[in-house]
């Protein structure tokens, strides 16, 4: 266990920023889901197969699992420690001094963690450890699994809500991590703050739009029936 507070924070910052980098790659891959169905199915499944067979990706993936767990475990350690050291007041108006999401990283992180568990079950476990149906080209048909799942409006809601939580988590997390690394020059702090906001919005909105798009476009018939019933 790491003893010093600054080292614990450094671990949170480095694992957090590594996960931020991963999110960019993940989102770029997901963009293939915007392609027309015929092209998307072949391309997305080929992409998934290529990734799952690549040794380099396998090594990076281990780093990813370790980062998620270390980030979550140390978040709990830090929170327990901070609860002990922080003061409690009968009348407490300290909230005016800081944005709510900066004080709610634990809550937002918990939402994200639960989402990650569901997400791993939905796709990662399903793809790696089950005999899932194959597409016409003989590859595991992850594309159809995605489209089927996002035909369920509740999954769409869970995904979108989780992405909003992730957006707020990143909004504080990116700038906070860079501060922990020690960027203190005013000019670069401004650049980081703006870049952090742009990154958080683009990444979380990017991920959130995909299930909505799939629901609206790939399930048009169901949607039309629903509308006609009204």
């Amino acid at each position: 266990m790491i003893k010093l507070t600054l080292l614990r924070k450094l671990l949170m910052a480095l694992t957090g920023l590594f996960l931020c980098l991963f999110l960019v790659i993940h989102l770029l891959g997901n963009l293939q889901l915007f392609l027309p169905k015929e092209i998307a199915q072949e391309q997305f499944n080929a992409y998934s197969q290529a990734l799952s067979g690549n040794l380099f990706i396998k090594v990076v993936a281990i780093g990813l699992y370790v980062s998620i767990l270390a980030h979550a475990i140390y978040a709990v350690v830090i929170t327990i420690y901070n609860r002990k050291s922080g003061g409690k007041y009968a009348v407490d108006e300290r909230k005016v001094a800081s944005p709510w999401y900066s004080r709610s990283m634990g809550l937002l992180g918990t939402v994200i963690f639960v989402f990650i568990v569901i997400h791993f079950q939905n796709f990662w476990y399903y793809y790696k450890f089950t005999d899932m149906p194959l597409d016409p080209w003989g590859r595991k048909d992850l594309y159809s699994a995605v489209v089927n799942l996002f035909g369920n409006v509740w999954y769409v809601v869970i995904y979108v809500v989780s992405m909003v939580a992730m957006g707020y988590h990143l909004l504080h997390g990116v700038a906070s991590a860079v501060r922990t690394l020690g960027v203190y020059h005013q000019k670069y702090v401004r650049v980081v703050n703006v870049a952090g906001v742009v990154y958080s919005v683009v990444i979380s909105a990017g991920f959130a739009i995909i299930p909505i798009y799939v629901y609206l476009v790939q399930h048009q018939e169901r949607l039309l029936t629903l509308l006609q019933l009204k």
């Binding site: 614990r8 924070k9 830090i78 901070n82 001094a97 800081s98 004080r103």
Partner: peptide
């Protein structure tokens, strides 16, 4: 405690 950069 740890600094969590809330800036309060």
């Amino acid at each position: 405690g740890h600094c969590t950069n809330t800036e309060a």
